[in-house]
Design a protein around this nucleic acid. Structure first.
Lengths: 213, 213
DNA sequence: CAAGAACATCTAACAGTGTTATATTTTATA
DNA sequence: TATAAAATATAACACTGTTAGATGTTCTTG
């Protein structure tokens, strides 16, 4: 039995090594330079070994995408926990989102189709769950903020996507170097965008907010 | 002399045919399926002919990116012109932006690094100008809206990027199929996002707005 | 302990990629 | 019509993702 578990452990480790090699390669030279052969060389195996773990290069990238969403979720949750109030929580999560993209651009790229695999099958269970987990964290924070602000938050799902879209849009533009210097500090831009978003939501309620008891 | 001009015309036409072939191929099968050889076959020449017009595949894509920004500029200007007031103009431009992405996803992708060429040299003159032109149209519309709203618009550049980021973020998420059905109609989402953005800007002015004379 | 089955891994190949050096054809000039 | 020049094609290089088939290595069973 113990030999079998060792085998399984080794398999797990090799799988992790493959994923890490792909990441390191992408971090160092960009996703365009990542090839099956280079990954294999890095883990000191022959190329076909990759296909023992992943059906294709694309599936390998999807696996990294899952890992990315999991790591992002951790960061978002941390930011949420450390904040003093619901508004600060959302701002902290916004900067955490951006910081994550800065710290792990190769993961952020693979998570958002910025690596050349824009369209791919996301219907796998683990993929869906990893993405949903990250979404739920933000969704919960928005809902909490709404209650705290004495607003009836309707269209929670929509507000989630507005926030996600805002953050992703700015982050992608910044990463691609699309912003002129006049746009100032990127992090400040993210904060401004989030503050503006919240202001718009506050003001969106012309109907009387739910009275506090 | 007339033979020379014919040659030049043919060259221009061939260049255009190459670009169109690349676009058509991408529209039909995605950018991943676009290769120099397939483009060449489509224009009925041998592969190396492409390099008479473009230094590399990447430069060919950058040329299409320029074309994309030019077309987008036209659409934005049209939307601006057709609107009744500055607020409507911004909303119309937002939907025009999204509609452009819907109509020409292959161009939108190449314009925003969603085709596998996320990082590339954008410092060429024609590239910078095409991008700046599109930006200026939106920038002008925001400035006009500010005056119309009796707001002193400071940080115009930043507001431009907030709008651009919002639109691009949502568009990219929608294109990649990242939105659940609960998010509702994509176009409505774009409108909502823009309205929210403007609300935030209106409310951003706690200092007294510039008085109307 | 030896033989055979199962497993793990590799080698070699296929069809395709971007790109370039070289050859060939076509066109224009003398 | 011969020659220079321009336009285009062929063939190759080094690389890509992927797979079939061969080769070892380990385990199970007689």
């Amino acid at each position: 039995m113990t030999v079998k578990t060792r085998r399984e452990r080794e398999k797990r480790e090799l799988r992790a090594a493959i994923l890490n090699s792909a990441r390191e390669l992408a971090a160092a030279e960009g996703w365009g330079a990542v090839s099956i052969r280079k990954i294999a060389e890095r883990v000191e195996y022959s190329p076909p070994i990759i296909y023992e773990f992943f059906d294709s290069k694309e599936r390998l990238l999807v696996a990294l995408m899952v890992e990315g969403f999991e790591r992002l979720s951790v960061r978002l949750a941390e930011a949420h926990r450390a904040a003093n109030d619901p508004r600060a929580a959302l701002l902290a999560m916004a900067t955490a989102y951006f910081q994550f993209a800065q710290d792990s651009p190769e993961l952020y790229q693979v998570m958002n189709g910025l690596d050349g695999v824009y369209f791919c099958d996301l219907s796998e269970d683990t993929t869906l769950r990893a993405m949903a987990a990250a979404r739920e964290i933000v969704k919960g924070a928005i809902a909490t903020w709404g209650i705290w602000q004495n607003l009836r938050i309707e269209d929670l799902e929509i507000k989630l996507y507005l926030m996600w879209g805002t953050l992703h849009g700015l982050t992608a533009l910044i990463m691609a170097g699309r912003l002129s210097d006049e746009a100032g500090d990127p992090r400040a831009l993210i904060v401004t965008a989030t503050e503006n978003l919240l202001r718009g939501w506050e003001r969106g309620f012309t109907s009387p907010p739910t009275p506090s008891p």
